[in-house]
Structures are given as C-alpha cells and as structure tokens.
Design a protein around this nucleic acid. Sequence first.
RNA 1: GGUCCGUUCGUCUAGGGGUUAGGACGUAUCCCUUUCACGGAUAAAACACGGGUUCGAUUCCCGUACGGACUACCA
Length: 512
Amino acid sequence: MNREVRVRFAPSPTGALHIGGVRTALYNYLFARKMGGKFLLRIEDTDQTRFVPGAEEYIKEALDWLGIAPDESPWNPGACGPYRQSERKPMYMQYALDLVEKGHAYYAFDTSEELDAMRERLTAARVVSPQYNSITRTQMKNSLTLPEDEVKARLASGEPYVIRIKIPRKEEVRLNDMIRGWVMVHSNTLDDKVLMKSDGMPTYHLANIVDDHLMGITHVIRGEEWLPSAPLHVLLYKYFGWEDTMPQFAHLPLLLKPDGNGKLSKRDADKHGFPVFPMDWTDPNTGDKVIGFREAGYLPDAFLNFLAFLGWNPGDHREIFNLDELVQAFSIERIGKSGTKFDINKAKWYNEQYLRSKSDEELAAYLIADLEKEGLTVSLDKAAQIAAIMKERATFPADLWREGRFMLVAPTQFDEAVSSKKWNQEAVTVLTTYKSKLEVSQEALTAESAKALLEQAASDNEIKFGKVMQAVRLAVTGVGAGPDLMAVFVIIGKDELIKRIAFALDTLHVQS
RNA sequence: GGUCCGUUCGUCUAGGGGUUAGGACGUAUCCCUUUCACGGAUAAAACACGGGUUCGAUUCCCGUACGGACUACCA
C-alpha cells in the first residue's frame, strides 16, 4: 500500500509557540515537501482551562513568517476538517464507547479526592509508582468493579465520569521509531490513562489517535517527550483495529539549555538575553513578555537554516541551505538521537551569512524603515550605498543604522579614548590642509579623488598618511572604527565633509 | 523511585572495527589593511568509564556513571 504522505503539526494554543515546536513544524514541513505529501496543522485545544487568547494566531503568524504554512489548517481547511479539536468534540465519544464495548476501556467514577487518596495510600505502602492500573483499578469505583446496575444508574443520573483505557496486564508493546529503532515496553508499566474527560472532551491520547487516523496521517514526527506515551498510542491503534494504517513514529531529540541541563525554557531566554520564541509575545493572562527572533532581527531564512541544523545535518560539509535546499536534502534518517544544546552564536553567524547575501536594495528597505522611526528620510539610492558598506559588519539589519548613523548624522561629540591618543598636531595640520584642498577642488568627490587629496595633504606636510587616518576618521565620524573611510566621504558628500572637518578642528584640542 | 531515551572537541556535528578522528560556530595567533570588521591561513580542543568480542575497538555487545524525558481528567 502506498499512501500519500500526510504529516501534521499539532500544537496546543496555550501561549507562544516555543522554538522546539517551531523545529518540529519545520521537520514536518520538510518531510512532507520532500515526499511530495501534505503538511497539516491541527490545533489541540482539548484543555479548555489552558486556552490562551491569541495563541492560535501566534502559531499561524510564526509559520507564515517562516514560509512553512500548512497545506491544511483551521484557516485553510482541507477535506479532513475541522482542524481544531474543540470543534471535533462530538466525534470522539463514539470511539471511546467503541473501546468500552470491545472491553478495552471502562467508565470510572472516582473523584479527584479519591484519586489523591489512592496515590497517597500507595505511596505510604511504598509502591514505587502509584498509578491507576490493572491492580489498583480493582479497588476503585469503575465499571469493572461496580455492579452493572449501579454503573447504569450512575450514568443515567448524570454523575461525572471518565473513560479509561484498560491496559492489559502482561503484554510487550513495541514500536519501530524512525529515529530510535525498536522501542519496547511492558504493559505493566503503563497506566489506565483517561481517554475521555469528565467535561466530555477527549484527552490528547484519544484525540490524537482518532484525528490522525481520520486525517490520514502517515508519519507522526513529534518531540521526544512523547516517547513514553507512544506505546499507549500503539495499543490504541490496535484496539481500534487500525494497525494497518498506523502512522510511523519519529521522536525528535529535545532542545536543551545552552549551559546546564534540561529542556530549553523561557528562563534561559531571560537569563542569557536571547530569544527562544519565533516572535514577540505578551501573555494576555499573566502579562509575561517574551522576545522573538523576528523582532530581535533574525531573518526568516537564517532562522530556518539554523533551526534545521539543530539535530539534523545533510551528511556533508555544507551549512547554508535555503528552504528549497533543505527540502531537497532532508531525511528523517539523518536526524540525530541526542539532545541538542542551544547555541545562539551559531544563530548569529547564520544571520550574518544571510544578511551579507542580501542585495543592497533589500537591506536598504530595512534601513529606511529604521530611519522612519526616527523621522529621518533618505533616498533608496543612498540607503543602498550605506547598506553596501555596512553589511559586512552587521549581524542584524538594525546594525546598519545603529552603527552607520554617522553617515547621515554628523557627530556632535568625539570618542574620548580615540581623541586622547590620536588627535595630535600632525592630525590637525593634515586636516587643515585637506580641508582647504577640498574647498578649492573642482572635481567631483569620489573614493579615489578623496584619497588622492588626503594623501597630498599628508605628503605636503611630510607626514605619513597612515599616521593620521585614525584622527581623520574620528573627525568625520566621531568614532575610531568603521567601514572604509573614503566610501564614507563619498556618501556624506563634499560639503558635509568640509563642515565636519571644520567642526572637529574647532571642537577638539590637542593634548600635550 | 520506576519506565523509556541518550552520551565524539566548550557548542552543533561527520565518521565508523585498522583514520594524522573531518567540518562548522566560538576562542587564540598571523596575513590582508586607513581603523574595526569581512576574507584568508594556522593553532589549541573530543570518541564518559569498566568489562567483553576481536589480531585490532572510538566504532559491535554488556554493565556502570552521567544527563534527559515521562510518571495529571496538560498537551
């Protein structure tokens, strides 16, 4: 049987989409495209208590930003809708009841207090892992222990209940994970997980099996945190009689903290000052703010490239891949098994690579946008010129302006450390000469003519050109470092250049 | 605690029974140069440990250690 590949990304709308989730979405997308299949988005909102307004929109916007929009989603439904589990609510009960009928599930009436009491009792009795299972269920209030009449009466009276899976006492459950190979667990370590909650909603375990089946999902690519419950899912496929079309599983390694141990979290972002979310987000309930890669200045292609390499590699030494190239090169077999520590330096490096590969005009658009925020305007042409000489030294688009502002705004003060060391009589002499040469020159200012004139000014005074360059730079830009000076001169223009030199000559004083 | 998963330079990783264990980020040095960058070159830097199997193990097997995930009417 050769089914069309269909994969899904199934986040819960409980807040900002974590970077690990974004990577899961990306791998799903890459796999779908590579296999010529479909990538779907399903919103797993079965926990009504954790609903956060705006979270869904955040997910959509993040995927759109990265260019990995799903083929089917709540906003772009295909034939398998709805794509929100809350909207699929009426579908689940029949499947749960089917399991009850087959003897693979049962009703349970225990209150949360009774559940707590059971766990306390077991803990006190030094039972290693207190759980609702084949042994303990015999002492709880459920349709396995209660007389049939009573069960019916309780159901009829509207008493709250859940439906639990009846895990077999002794059975080896095995699955062949695409990343990890055969994983085996004994059913006696599994517990009778709740399938239907008392509010009439399914739990993740039921909903994801039913939906994946109904949606024709062929491969489940998800985080490693799901591995322990995968055997439960395998059992469910078996009990539903869907073994033939059970998806293949691929459990992705986790994204870990950059320094210590454990899963990457928002705390790490706060601690190290880098984002772990794709975009800015303010939680409407708690007011918590997180910063995003997008707002921090990461380019979507760079971010995607970085993300793809967190746990996957193409097997050769190439590092730069755009989305299409990632699709071509991607394979699940080349995903690593071990957890990946998060290194923001690599992300920055990727961003630099992509920034430099952009055209001057593209970069100019960023620059112009930044300038507008400060009420400044500049021609596209000039912005492109600035971008051209700044991009080699920028990590983020914002660096273009932050480090290049002197090209549009004359310095009003001068870097003290540089002036104390480099501002000397020789510099003053050369600059004075240079200024007058510029004033009388009829030539248009080019990088070549600007340099020729400066060299003349230096040699006229029998001073080595290189010796005063730092001072010249200081005079014109206010700082001691920056892009090629002659290019800067051309951008600011002759008049402005003369003005700046005059101002520096007036303002700075030679220290003895 | 239990179950499951994992372990190659600081980090991301390639590799795989016999290799000078390769690349990238980062770090250091040098070159280029009007500074700072970019770029180029070089360097330091790794197979967790212990047993097997084998002529030979970093690679295969088993333990140990360490790390992680899971252990809810959350996903």
